[in-house]
């Protein structure tokens, strides 16, 4: 087990209400673990709190990383232990070059440029076109997200929290991202993937469904997705598109059974 959240409750900054409550899940080493759930269900909040950001400190529960309780640690310390986050919308910082930015997280500074070039290749950006550019407004949203991904990969962390890497990208690019995830996996990193898209989620080994601030189920991804569809009442969609012709396919009876269970709640 790489990461474990036990009964994590995260209040809003003013402590007036809880954004998520009693979240529990576990992420296995070397896996791609997807967190799915509708807008506003608390997915980003969970990622921020795993990263240790200031306004997302839990009021209850604990975060265990490689057997160590890291709930009280700051962002830097968590990053130094091997956790990093690729933001849903990474910032643009004038004056900071792509080379310098990607190099930031590389601990062993020998052959630095070569490592940066390698990282850019991993996210399918042509190194010589990008390495001397700046991460300012001149980059498109997709380019900026890839550079962010390159920077996190270059760090060689143990766990990458990816908050909607697919947001704002077109279909053609999605294919590309699936390849990138596989490359990351080969590099022995674990991915916690937050996404809205079932097609992206399909690369995941396991998943957790977050619904209205609660973690409902953690299981094999297909199982989690099925439960999500049942919750949302998307039976036809589920049968026709989601599990058709995939190796993760369920038989119709099983799908009917899950939907019936959900309806009777």
């Amino acid at each position: 087990m790489l990461l474990e959240l036990n009964n994590l409750t995260i209040p809003t900054f003013d402590k007036r209400k809880n954004i998520v409550e009693k979240i529990s899940l576990d992420v296995q080493k070397g896996s791609i673990h997807a967190i799915i759930g509708p807008n506003g269900s608390g997915k980003s909040t969970i990622a921020y709190s795993i990263m240790g950001l200031e306004n997302y400190q839990p009021s209850e529960g604990e975060i265990i990383f490689e057997g160590e309780n890291i709930t009280e640690l700051g962002v830097t310390e968590r990053a130094q232990r091997g956790i990093t986050l690729a933001w849903q919308e990474p910032a643009r910082i004038e004056g900071l070059s792509v080379l310098k930015y990607i190099a930031l997280g590389i601990k062993d500074k020998s052959n630095l440029k070569k490592k940066v070039i390698e990282a850019l290749k991993t996210v399918n950006l042509e190194p010589k076109k990008y390495i001397n550019r700046f991460i300012d407004e001149s980059l498109s949203g997709g380019e900026r997200k890839r550079i962010e991904l390159a920077a996190t990969i270059a760090m060689r962390p143990k766990l990458i929290l990816l908050d909607e890497p697919d947001a704002g990208l077109d279909m053609i690019v999605i294919e590309d991202f699936l390849n990138i995830f596989n490359k990351i996996k080969e590099l022995d990193m674990t991915i916690l993937l937050i996404t809205h898209r079932e097609d992206i989620g399909m690369v995941a080994d396991r998943g957790t469904l977050v619904w209205q601030g609660m973690s409902l189920i953690t299981d094999k991804f297909a199982e989690v997705m099925l439960r999500y569809c049942a919750k949302a009442g998307l039976k036809e969609f589920c049968k026709r598109t989601l599990f058709e012709d995939t190796e993760k396919c369920f038989d119709e009876d099983y799908i009917d059974k899950i939907f019936a269970e959900e309806n009777s709640k």
Binding site: M51, L53, E54, G74, V75, T76, A79, Q80, T84, L85, W87, P90, A91, I93, L104, G105, K107, A151, T152, M155
Partner: peptide
């Protein structure tokens, strides 16, 4: 957020 991003890279 800028600081968070850089700190999340270990700085």
């Amino acid at each position: 957020k800028w600081l968070d991003e850089l700190q999340a890279k270990g700085l």
